[in-house]
Structures are given as structure tokens and as C-alpha cells.
Design a protein around this nucleic acid. Structure first.
Length: 570
RNA sequence: GGGCAUGUAGCUCAGUGGAUUAGAGCAUUUGGCUACGGACCAAAGGGUCGGGGGUUCGAAUCCCUCCAUGCUCACCA
């Protein structure tokens, strides 16, 4: 199903075209038609303001244009009435029995309600959390992790076949240092007196002491004379286990772990360089072309030449180094190769979640992709702003365990996976985020997570009661549902528009907001629309039970889309 | 200094050209439990949409400018 706003827009467009053919409206271009719910409910369900904009080009008063449009509009089964309102709106009223039928749709297919076909037949990849396995997931990274997963869920719901990918590098200096750090811990645990060398490079995390003990349990002294490599491999294995365990706790699972090394093994990195050279976008020089800073010039006088990407051709402020003077590539080169690899895997949409601090790098890579002759259009980079954690009104300082700061694990322990997912998804990625631990753990009306889940719990309560009383919903007469229920069902219908927006803009926070609005529509109604009131008509009771069955499915669906649980009891 | 982003109610934030009145949650004030779970509900107060210009019939939304805040401008990874 398409969002009704889109269907109505299409009806309006067709009506204008028909009127133009009939000579009742001048043959002008038709602008994009925006359909919005009017401010006041009594003005209808959807309104089009297109006549106001057309007034000038068509040389007619808006009200006249609106009247002509309304006259030519066809009326599908979901529309009860088409009306014209000053100064020139075309308003549409939905058919109430059609709305009531949403109850049946939700009961039978609630778990796919709001699904769209935007991405039907298309493949999307979402790359997120790509962190080198040198430590546990930090709070800082968790926002991107949860956003990436939520975007993947949105894309799945809007028809895409989605792969979640984790890109990592296990061959760099950091991993060498990690291996070396574990080696030192291992030797220390065996009783050797080893000084911790360079504090800058040494990984201080106490977990390495635990790993060293485990390693001794498994292999004894066998590695006493080994170099850093087996330690690096062991640390990496453990670290990935840890990262994946943390991910599992919060509902995240990657389909593909892509090792940067494969880009070297297959020669892709150097092929990328050759291709860029062939295309004339690379030069060899000790210094950036056009460098004017005398300090930089003086400093580089004795250096070996490096290979530069002339990214300024593609709008960059300055050219970037691809291969350092020591012959090693910078991250830019394998990053470009990686993106080419992704494009060649045939995805229609490539989403990449990065911190705001990676903005420049992402731009360089994009320019590299263009320089390689590829269309960068499928690549969408979402940058997330910082998240700061607050407890008791003060910046949160993580665990006192040495070397492990601000882990996502600790935050899950302190709060809950549901709370973290909701609070991190609640805001637009563009806005900086304050995560207040006190609010996230509070079991009160400060906490929207409980407010939303409580709606599901209340529905469950009603259905439990129905079970006890042996009342079923078969043959429910939905025409008995009143305005309160209809208001809620109209709200349910909005999910289709929300999904469209969330998918188009890669913005799951709209769903988080919607979940709160839906709860806001639910609770007042729950108070008044009772299924077990004294002396209630059995037919009305049955209709309302069907309605609450649908309502429960609706909350389950929305919570699913956010990756949150829908509890039966709290 | 350049780039990107942000600035909307006391607080946290939605809202990327339309309906005489700019929304939500929390907080504040007032009222409501013999009910399917009160982790709830009803009502009220609270705004020069950072400042100033401009475009438009119409601007929180588009353009210019200024101010404030965050991130970023490596032969780092």
C-alpha cells in the first residue's frame, strides 16, 4: 500500500490534467503536490494547497481552481467526500468504514503494517559500527550502531533486501600494539617482570589481563617466546566475541564482516591507484601542488616524494595523500577501493553511518569514487553528532576499571537495551544528544519508553481479561466502533507516511517520535473506551476487543521497527 | 581563517513554503482512583522560532549578513 497522502496527490494531479484537457484550466506545468492533514480535524483528513500556488500562473482565483480540481477528482473506495474550502484548499474526507477495516488488517497482518514497496527488488547495504577490534564498543560509537541498525530495519520495512556490514582493519599499527600489549600482560602473568613501555601505545584495559590468564589456562607457557602476532590474533578473536555479544544484547547483528585486508589480498588497493593514475588524477611530489606555506615547504625539503590525489579537480580545498613517502597507503586509498568494491557488489543503495568527525574523510572518498569514473549517487553517508552521557546532572564518568571507559555494556547494565535504543533513536542524527541515565532508568512518566510500552501492556491486560471471561472476537461488528477508536485508527494510518519519510531521509527518529504520539493517542482513549464496563452491550464489547487486538498488534509493530521489545507485563 | 552541523516554551527536542491560534514530552499549577494495571487521565499557564535584512499573496522553513555553540580542516588510524 502507498501512503494515502501520495494516493491523494496522484488523484489531484490527474484531476488537474483532466481539467486541462477539458479546457477548464490553462495548460501549465503542474508543480509538486503536497498533501497534508488540515490543522483542524473537522476540515477533513487531507488537504491540498496546490490551487493557491497555481492561482498566479493560471490567472484565476484559487477558490475557482480548487473547485474545478474537486469536480474532476475520481473517488476511490477510501474517500467519502471531496470538499473545497477557502482560500482554495481541496479537502478529502476518508470513508469511516474503510478506516474501521484497518482493524482487520492489523489483526491479520499487523507485523507488516506500514510496509511500503519503495525498495521492492532493490538491494541495500548499511555499513555501521565499523570499528577496529581493539576494544569494546564505547558509548560514543553506540549511537551510530543503533542508528545503522534502525535504518536497516526501516529499509527492510520499505521493501529493500538489506545487508548489514561491518568493515574492519586488523592489520594496522593499533592491532600490532594490541597484540604487544597482550604479550606483555601474558609475560607478567607468568611472573616475568616487564615494564610497560610507552603509555601512549600500550592498551591499558584490564580485560587484557583477563585474556592473558585465559591464554595461560589454554596454552600454558607455550607462547613465552612468541612475538606479538599470536597475541594479536587471540586478542582480536576475543574482542570480536565481545563486540558481537554487546551487539546481541542490544538487538544488532551484522551479516557481513568485511576485512580491509581482502582489498590488499585481491590487489584492489593498488588497482585503484593504477586506475586513478591512468585517469590522470595522481601526481608524485614531496609537496602538495600550489603549496604556499613556507614552513611546510621547508619541512618537506628532505622528504621522499608521496603520491597525491588531485582531489581539487573534484571540488576539494586541497589535494590528499594516497601513498605516503614510505610507500604505505593512507586510509584514503583503501577506503576508495572499499567503496568501489561495494558499488561493484551491485547494491542499489549504500548507506554508511559515520561520526561527524569523519565528514572530511567521507567527502574525499566520495571524490575518489567520482575520479574512478563511478556514479557516487547510491552512496549515502549519515553523520551522527556526538552523544554525551549525563548522570545526576553531571557528565558521566564510566567504569573505574582501568582502561575501559564508557562502554555500551556498562550503559546497558545501568539502564536497558530498550531505553538506550529509544533515547538514541529519538533525536535527529544532526542534533547533539544528551543521554540522561537518571531519566532512562526512571520508572515514571518522565520516561517515554515506559509510556510507549505501557500501551502494549494495557492491551495485553485487556486480552488476558477477555481470555479469562471466554470472550472471543470472531464476527465482531466493526461498524460499532466510535469516534475515539476512529481517531486512533487514523493515527495508525499515519505510519505509512512516517515510513515513507523515514526511508526517503534515512531518519528513523521520525518513528520514535511517532511511537510517542501513538501512545499519546492511546492512553486517553483507553480510559474512556472500555471493553468491560458494567452493562456493556456484548456486540460492542466484541467490537472493542477486536479493536484492542488490532491496537496491540500496532504497538508491537512500531516497537519492532525501533528494535524494542513489546512486553506483556511490566 | 575555511568546511559541516546546531540555535524553536524553564529543560530535552519535533517541525525543509500554506488554514486568523508554531507542536510534543518532561517540569510547574489545579482537579480526578468502588474500573480491562493510576507507570494513567482532565485542565491551565508558559514562545519577539538566536539578532537583523531580503524573496513571496504567505517564511521557523528559501536567500544574505551578523552572533553563539559543537565537530573538523595530517605523509593519523
Amino acid at each position: 500500500m502507498k501512503p494515502l497522502t501520495h494516493q491523494v496527490a496522484e488523484l489531484v494531479r490527474e484531476a488537474i490534467q483532466k481539467a486541462q484537457h477539458a479546457g477548464e484550466l490553462p495548460a501549465t506545468d503542474i508543480p509538486a503536490i503536497d498533501i497534508k492533514p488540515p490543522k483542524k480535524a473537522e476540515q477533513g483528513d487531507y488537504g491540498a494547497s496546490v490551487a493557491l500556488g497555481l492561482s498566479k500562473v493560471m490567472g484565476k482565483p484559487p477558490i475557482e481552481i480548487a473547485t474545478i480540481i474537486a469536480k474532476h477528482m475520481t473517488k476511490p473506495d477510501f474517500i467519502a467526500a471531496i470538499e473545497v474550502a477557502p482560500p482554495g484548499f481541496v479537502n478529502v474526507r476518508l470513508d469511516e468504514n474503510w478506516i474501521r477495516n484497518l482493524v482487520n488488517i492489523l489483526i491479520t497482518n499487523g507485523d507488516s503494517f506500514g510496509a511500503l514497496d519503495i525498495g521492492a527488488g532493490k538491494r541495500a547495504q548499511v555499513e555501521f559500527l565499523s570499528a577496529n577490534p581493539t576494544g569494546p564498543i564505547t558509548i560514543g560509537r553506540s549511537r551510530g550502531a543503533i542508528l545503522g541498525d534502525a535504518i536497516a530495519r526501516v529499509l527492510e520495512a520499505t521493501g529493500y533486501t538489506v545487508e548489514r556490514e561491518y568493515y574492519f582493519n586488523n592489520a594496522g599499527v593499533q592491532m600490532h600494539n594490541l597484540g604487544e600489549s597482550l604479550r606483555i600482560r601474558y609475560l607478567q602473568e607468568l611472573g616475568h617482570t616487564i615494564e610497560i613501555p610507552d603509555m601512549e601505545k600500550f592498551y591499558q584495559g584490564d580485560y587484557l589481563i583477563d585474556y592473558a590468564k585465559d591464554l595461560i589456562n589454554e596454552q600454558g607457557k607455550a607462547l613465552e617466546n612468541a612475538d606479538w602476532q599470536p597475541f594479536k590474533e587471540y586478542a582480536e578473536k576475543r574482542m570480536f566475541q565481545w563486540i558481537q555479544e554487546t551487539c546481541a544484547r542490544i538487538g544488532i547483528k551484522h551479516d557481513v564482516f568485511f576485512n580491509e585486508n581482502t582489498l590488499y589480498d585481491t590487489g584492489a588497493v593498488w588497482k585503484t591507484l593504477e586506475e586513478l593514475q591512468k585517469r590522470g588524477h595522481v601526481y608524485t611530489s614531496v609537496i602538495r601542488e600550489g603549496e604556499t606555506d613556507e614552513k611546510v615547504i621547508a619541512k618537506s625539503a628532505n622528504q621522499q616524494p608521496a603520491q597525491w590525489f588531485r582531489s581539487t579537480t573534484f571540488g576539494d580545498d586541497e589535494d590528499r595523500v594516497l601513498v605516503k613517502s614510505n610507500g604505505e597507503p593512507t586510509y584514503t586509498l583503501p577506503d576508495i577501493a572499499y567503496h568501489i568494491n561495494k558499488i561493484n557488489r551491485g547494491f542499489d543503495l549504500l548507506v554508511n553511518i559515520l561520526g561527524a568527525d569523519h565528514f572530511t574523510q567521507a567527502q574525499v572518498v566520495r571524490r575518489g569514487v567520482v575520479a574512478m569514473g563511478y556514479d557516487p549517487e547510491p552512496i549515502h553517508v549519515v553523520h551522527v553528532q556526538m552523544v554525551s552521557v549525563v548522570r545526576d546532572g553531571k557528565p558521566f564518568k564510566g567504569s573505574t576499571r582501568r582502561g575501559i571507559f564508557d562502554t555500551l555494556d556498562e550503559l546497558i547494565d545501568l539502564t536497558s537495551a530498550d531505553a538506550i535504543r529509544y533515547f538514541l533513536l529519538q533525536r535527529s542524527p544532526d542534533s547533539q544528544l544528551k543521554f540522561d541515565i537518571n531519566v532512562a532508568v526512571s520508572q515514571s512518566n518522565e520516561n517515554p519508553v515506559y509510556y510507549i510500552q505501557y500501551a502494549h501492556v494495557r492491551c495485553s491486560g485487556i486480552l488476558r481479561e477477555a481470555d479469562v471471561r471466554g470472550v472471543g472476537i470472531d464476527g465482531a461488528d466493526l461498524s460499532l466502533l466510535g469516534t475515539e477508536e476512529l481517531t486512533f485508527l487514523r493515527k495508525c494510518l499515519e505510519l505509512l507516511d512516517i515510513m515513507q519519510i523515514a526511508s526517503d531521509n534515512l531518519s528513523p527518529h521520525t518513528i520514535a517520535f511517532y511511537a510517542l504520539e501513538l501512545s499519546n493517542a492511546f492512553h486517553p482513549m483507553y480510559d474512556r473506551v472500555r471493553a468491560f464496563a458494567d452493562g456493556i452491550d456484548p456486540n460492542l464489547q466484541k467490537a472493542r476487543l477486536a479493536f484492542y487486538t488490532a491496537t496491540k498488534a500496532m504497538f508491537k509493530r512500531v516497537l519492532d521497527l525501533l528494535g524494542m521489545t513489546a512486553p506483556e507485563r511490566m
